[in-house]
């Protein structure tokens, strides 16, 4: 057992958020996790709320009435933001985790270049795209309606 070997020193969940070198990719990872959990929660609620359409028009309209109001609009906007982040960062991750856009193995010569440097333009591009979507979404949610 690990405990028998000395004083336990795992960072625990704190280590998911910080406790490394505090690089930007760490925060993308943390946000990906938080948005994922949030979306899963919303998704389960969403399945129950929207399944009222199976019963008929009145049941549907009643359940839709129950989720109206400024708080729900704000909540739905947050879901939109979470989807925008999770989807676009997710596309970046699919490529990166399949070894695309992270560079080839190189000779490590100081100052060391890592796959994070190769990944940086893609991460910045993804963030810009997310920001653009979040802005367009805000206009659609709060201005054009």
């Amino acid at each position: 057992m690990e405990k028998d070997r000395g004083h336990p020193n795992r960072l625990g969940i704190w280590g998911w958020i910080g406790g490394g070198s505090w690089g930007p990719d760490r925060y993308l990872y943390t946000l990906h996790r938080i948005t994922g959990l949030g979306l899963l929660f919303y998704f389960v609620v969403h399945i129950f709320v929207t399944s009222s359409r199976a019963i008929g028009q009145s049941a549907w309209e009643e359940s839709m009435m129950r989720v109206t109001g400024p708080l729900f609009v704000l909540g739905e906007y947050l879901v939109f933001v979470a989807v925008a982040f999770h989807a676009i960062n997710g596309v970046r991750l699919v490529f990166a985790e399949l070894g695309l856009g992270i560079g080839k193995p190189i000779e490590p010569i100081y100052p060391y270049r890592t796959c994070l440097d190769d990944q940086r333009p893609w991460a910045i591009g993804a963030l810009l795209l997310i920001v653009a979507l979040v802005v367009v979404g805000a206009l659609d949610f709060f201005v054009w309606h």
Binding site: R26, T30, R33, A96, T114, C115
Partner: peptide, 8 residues
């Protein structure tokens, strides 16, 4: 999950 801290 590619937090990248190891490489950094």
């Amino acid at each position: 999950h590619f937090a990248g801290e190891c490489s950094r």
